[in-house]
């Protein structure tokens, strides 16, 4: 029970996490990383990124304290035999036009975290540095690891 309260407090604090770098007109909300078992070599990071500036930004990738690579991915959905086939595709970047919000979420666009070097459990935090173009603009985040999508 105490753990539960602690986790929900943690969630409340992470949901309201708003990151703003001086040079980066960006708002990041509700960032989290999917907790996965030790046998998994990959997981994903999710968040909402709003471009508050006047120029288009591109999310080109990230680096993570517990993985060798982090890349932007899109989820593909196609219909076959009346059933939906889901897959993913690596993309060079995910563009966010001024005023728009890019939603990284389960079953949609995401940052794939590959080559996990350790497997943080639920409630732990990992360092995630997201990178944007043009240029090499970076933003450091501390992101909670969760088993379930926060709702």
């Amino acid at each position: 029970m105490i753990i539960r309260i602690f986790l929900s407090l943690l969630y409340v604090s992470c949901a309201s996490l708003i990151a703003r770098a001086d040079s980066l007109p960006i708002k990041i909300e509700g960032a989290w990383v999917q907790a996965v078992p030790a046998v998994a070599d990959a997981t994903a990071a999710y968040m909402k990124i709003t471009n508050l500036g006047d120029a288009s930004l591109k999310l080109v990738g990230a680096s993570c304290s517990v993985a060798s690579r982090v890349e932007p991915m899109i989820t593909t959905r196609q219909e076959r035999n009346g059933q939906e086939i889901m897959g993913m595709e690596a993309v060079p970047d995910l563009e966010i036009v001024p005023g728009a919000t890019l939603e990284l979420k389960p079953g949609g666009d995401h940052l794939m975290i590959m080559g996990l070097t350790s497997h943080p459990s639920e409630g732990e935090r990992v360092k995630l540095t997201v990178r944007f173009a043009p240029g090499d603009q970076r933003l450091d985040l501390e992101v909670p690891v969760l088993r379930q999508e926060p709702k």
Binding site: Q34, A44, G107, E149
Partner: peptide
């Protein structure tokens, strides 16, 4: 499949 980063952990969760 277990190397699935997005869809499968979400389905199992």
């Amino acid at each position: 499949f277990t190397h699935c980063p997005n869809v499968c952990p979400t389905t199992l969760s």
